[in-house]
């Protein structure tokens, strides 16, 4: 009997030991650091470490240029710093075509993790970590070579006439592009008419794959845009950008109100026509109106 109890106790001990070991090992054996994960999720779309500027600046040795507090504050809300007229922030903003760096919902510790990762990468061989492979279609065509067919494929994808392969929502749901043969798109996100000239192909490309914008990220995280689709879309955006000078800027908002009013007038006109002789008020209306009221 006592043997049995002993055995049981040993087993219990073993279970506890293994559990702890498993927990500890899982921490240590994790292939990426927290900083790397966050960097790859949120920063990589616009920044490189040692491979030159993309949408935003190269972050190699960024910790030598700015203080830690400055970086944390900038990452949390770049716009707030610009509004506060922080000289460095304003210079940076103007230098990068006034592209707004989106506010990141990260804690101080997480930002420090990312910095630690950047430091590690900067001191290393300085190899590129951004998604800046050459942007080519599967047939090997480059953006500059893209013709009418590619632009039109991109337009169809943008409009949602052709579905994205992995089921992501059509760009138009949230974005607007002013171009010919295109109705007004959504107003939920950035107007993409001149995005190409602001971000260039690699910038747009990387945002499509790992968007720093939380909502776009959520929308496409599980429904990735394929490389070909990205190619067509960029071809379309480039085309739209180049031709945007010929486009009349349309203000749909005021038109919507006017059209709504007109539509309402027509509808009520029709209703009024159908029910022109309806019974409008109680038969005794006049009598009731004449009656004295006490309250």
């Amino acid at each position: 009997m006592s043997d049995l109890i002993n055995l049981f106790n040993k087993a219990k001990l073993l279970i506890i030991v293994f559990t702890f070991a498993a927990i500890l090992l899982s921490e240590y054996s994790y292939p990426q650091s927290q900083g790397e994960i966050i960097y790859k999720r949120t920063c990589i779309a616009c920044h490189t470490i040692g491979s030159g500027r993309l949408v935003g600046p190269d972050l190699k040795n960024v910790f030598n240029k700015r203080s830690e507090e400055w970086i944390i504050s900038f990452v949390k809300s770049s716009q707030r710093m610009i509004k506060r007229r922080d000289p460095d922030a304003v210079v940076l903003f103007n230098e990068y075509n006034k592209s707004i760096m989106p506010d990141q919902n990260l804690t101080d510790d997480q930002i420090k993790d990312v910095m630690r990762y950047i430091k590690k990468q900067s001191s290393g061989s300085g190899q590129t970590t951004a998604l800046t492979e050459d942007i080519k279609s599967s047939t090997g065509m480059t953006i500059d070579e893209a013709g009418e067919n590619e632009v039109s494929a991109g337009r169809n994808l943008f409009l949602g006439k052709v579905r994205l392969t992995n089921g992501g929502p059509a760009c138009m749901s949230c974005h607007n592009v002013t171009a010919e043969n295109l109705i007004a798109g959504g107003l939920l996100a950035m107007d993409l008419t001149n995005t190409y000239s602001r971000l260039n192909a690699p910038g747009v490309y990387s945002i499509m794959f790992s968007s720093p914008f939380p909502i776009m990220n959520a929308a496409y995280n599980n429904n990735k845009i394929t490389k070909d689709e990205a190619f067509y879309l960029i071809a379309f955006l480039k085309h739209a950008d180049i031709n945007s000078v010929n486009q009349q800027p349309v203000n749909y908002q005021s038109n919507f109100i006017l059209m709504g009013l007109l539509g309402a007038a027509i509808l009520f006109g029709i209703y009024g026509g159908i029910w022109w002789n309806r019974k409008r008020k109680p038969v005794n209306d006049k009598i009731f109106k004449r009656q004295l009221k006490t309250f």
Binding site: I274, W275, N277, R278, K279, P282, V283, N284, D285, F288
Partner: peptide
């Protein structure tokens, strides 16, 4: 059918 969702000649409670 035309008036099925809006019967225009109904007496109201004040009638």
């Amino acid at each position: 059918l035309v008036n099925i969702f809006h019967n225009p000649h109904l007496p109201v409670i004040d009638d």
